[in-house]
Design a protein around this nucleic acid. Sequence first.
DNA 1: CAATCTACGACCATTTTGGTCTTGCTTCCA
DNA 2: TGGAAGCAAGACCAAAATGGTCGTAGATTG
Lengths: 162, 162
Amino acid sequence: MLRLTKKADYGLMALKYLAEQAVLAEQAGADLNLSGARSAKDIAEAYHIPPQLLAKILQTLARANLLISHAGTNGGYALARPAADISTFEVIRAIDGPLFITSCITIHGACDLAGHCTIKEPLRKVNDSITTLLSGISVADLIEPADHLPAAMAGGLVNIER
Amino acid sequence: MLRLTKKADYGLMALKYLAEQAVLAEQAGADLNLSGARSAKDIAEAYHIPPQLLAKILQTLARANLLISHAGTNGGYALARPAADISTFEVIRAIDGPLFITSCITIHGACDLAGHCTIKEPLRKVNDSITTLLSGISVADLIEPADHLPAAMAGGLVNIER
DNA sequence: CAATCTACGACCATTTTGGTCTTGCTTCCA
DNA sequence: TGGAAGCAAGACCAAAATGGTCGTAGATTG
Ligand code: SF4
Ligand code: SF4
């Protein structure tokens, strides 16, 4: 249950890696435009994950406008936005699709028991809570765990009532 | 991603159903011992879900001490504890097994990149947060959405730092 | 133009999930 | 006392999701 797919896992790792590279490039005063661009192969090697698979993941990430790709020699991928502006939720959704907890929520009306299902609404709340939680965590937070996370969202998180 | 299996879904529905039955039985001043016991078939029919499958789910739930089973004519299942004392987390874990977000967390050390994975710890925090969230929601909360949910846990929920 | 990248889609193996069937055991009660 | 009604357990199977590969085509640079 509640398993994060390996693809999403890989994606997050790559994002984090790129975020680190961006920081390094900035420190070195490098060209801001392509700061920290790395090829799929480089990242794959750094983490020992199947290069071809990672490539595909990065492509979907690029399609979702989370990454900027640049083909050709010395090309590669770079973050489309500052790491702090990319939430883990976006990443996961981009990779694994918009599917969420129950079948009914996303594949709107797919579950044939939707009519006499009494558990649907409460579960949607749980779902929302998790979404909120994930949305509150940026890629930047992954690289250096932050304790300044939005306390504001706490209320919405545990609130199941309408 | 983060998909709740249908089995868990069914399980929750059944639990909720039994919780309602328990309330009804109590109101009618019925025998407290087997209050609201229902057969697997009854529940399955009420929600139009495959009876055999539901039966198996209820069995695992009974094995996990969440339900009490009683064989024989007029037998069936009843909640082992008051609905307010059964958390959705327990239910889900009983049915879908202890698997959680990343492979590394539960199948301790299964992921072969565990060594050079830098994302593991932060994800564990996220995982814990979801666990806490789920643990805070009881079956009783499903039947009648409560707004008196523990605000105390909010802090722990969003805290990713160590 | 050649090397180095990304882009995209088809394809396949493995695992997980959802669901069925069969067989056996327990309890009640007529 | 013997069914009927119920649970218990396991083998088994079909469909879907996941993880991963391959091949080909197009962009970019030097
Ligand atoms: S059973 Fe209810 S909660 Fe589950 S998918 Fe169907 S409608 Fe949604
Ligand atoms: S990649 Fe990292 S987070 Fe994902 S399973 Fe492996 S060790 Fe855990």
